[in-house]
Design a binder for these strands. Structure first.
Lengths: 205, 205
DNA sequence: TACTTTGTTGGTCACTTGACCAACTTGGAG
DNA sequence: CTCCAAGTTGGTCAAGTGACCAACAAAGTA
């Protein structure tokens, strides 16, 4: 009889659940499938989680946090704003390309939580995306020596809108070249809303 | 005993299934739920559809065609390109606002079909969206007396990317004002890629 | 009318699912 | 060592599921 700390067992179960939902979608997220994936008896799940719904909640929350974390780690290294945006969005689409079913699962979970009484979860998730996007935009502007001429929150929202749309578009037809062309259009459009830093800006800072 | 033509019964069942999936999500799309919603005995479903999967396929295809039709009916009446895009995208977001769970269902079905062996369905659906978007862009340009200076297919893709992203964003936080601001940014950006018609253009036509 | 085809119905079967539990095992406290 | 709380396990249960079918009814056909 393996004796495992509750917390570790909880994490193992959530990890197994994520593998299950990635492989087979939300519909495949049954207690038995998760237990089998984790190599645990069925009862273990109900010892850790009060109900299946609580398990799904935990999975959704972990995914949400993982996504937020991943978003915050990104850094845009290019010198110009346009190049930075192209590189960043391009890298993101290639992440989707490398594991489409994972992104599919993330979306399914978000929609699933939004449908239940968990509208907040999706709201938080997207709010996290936007916060990260805002940070990236700020950082890229500093590096490029420019200032944004539109409200940063609006621009960040625009960036997330683009990422979501690119994701769905790529999942639909898998056309990477087309995605890159869309990214180019978008990066150029966003770069429009910058102006070089003036002495006044530096002083204000 | 109601005796109904097969075709009509098929349509009634699909309509009932759409109501069910709109109300409760893909997970609620069971044969019994659909039969109850349609007011038919359970066996009727298996007389019309060979399997539950075939029913779901039919539902997905109908939704896909409905969406394509709805997209083609849209017309952009404003005079300038920018106004036309603002109005069109604004109207779309308000459509989502009026029935968010329906849009949720459409997305769920698309992702569900993409996960199974029905990648083509989602590909066709998005392809239809883009074709409609391309038509709208052409029409709006003619009305405004301008020409697009970028590839129309790329611009159409960009438009669909925006609509998808706006949809997810609105579903996440329901912020209509923010969506409108994003739309304004986007419309201005797309309008950049036009130039007035010259005599040469008219001659070429 | 008699007969065939098509449509309809309620019920049943095998199976999966989430929830639950009683028995058992382990590790630590006294 | 003894005992107890925490952890673990296999099994069971009721509910719900998709599929299927035999019996029946309504139209069409000869």
């Amino acid at each position: 009889m393996r004796r495992i700390p509750v917390e570790q067992r909880r994490e193992e179960l959530i990890a197994a659940a994520i593998r299950v939902v990635t492989r087979g979608g939300v519909g495949a997220l049954t207690t038995r499938a998760v237990a089998a994936e984790a190599g645990m008896p069925l009862g273990a799940i109900h010892y850790i989680f009060a109900s299946q719904d609580e398990l799904i909640r935990a999975v959704t929350d972990v995914i949400r946090d993982e996504e937020r974390l991943a978003a915050e780690v990104v850094s845009l290294e290019a010198q110009t704003i346009e190049d930075a945006l192209c590189a960043g969005l391009g890298a993101y689409v290639r992440l989707v390309e490398s594991d489409p079913t994972k992104e599919l699962a993330v979306l399914e979970l978000a929609l699933h939580s939004r449908r239940g009484d968990r509208h907040d979860t999706m709201r938080d998730q997207w709010s996290g995306y936007r916060a990260a996007a805002r940070g990236l935009l700020e950082q890229a502007a500093v590096r490029a020596g420019v200032t944004w001429t539109l409200d940063l929150d609006d621009l960040a929202r625009m960036l997330i809108v683009a990422m979501d749309g690119l994701t769905l578009g790529y999942l639909a037809d898998g056309d990477l070249d087309a995605a890159d062309r869309a990214i180019a259009i978008l990066a150029a459009a966003l770069a429009t809303h910058t102006r070089p830093l003036t002495a006044e800006d530096v002083h204000a800072h």
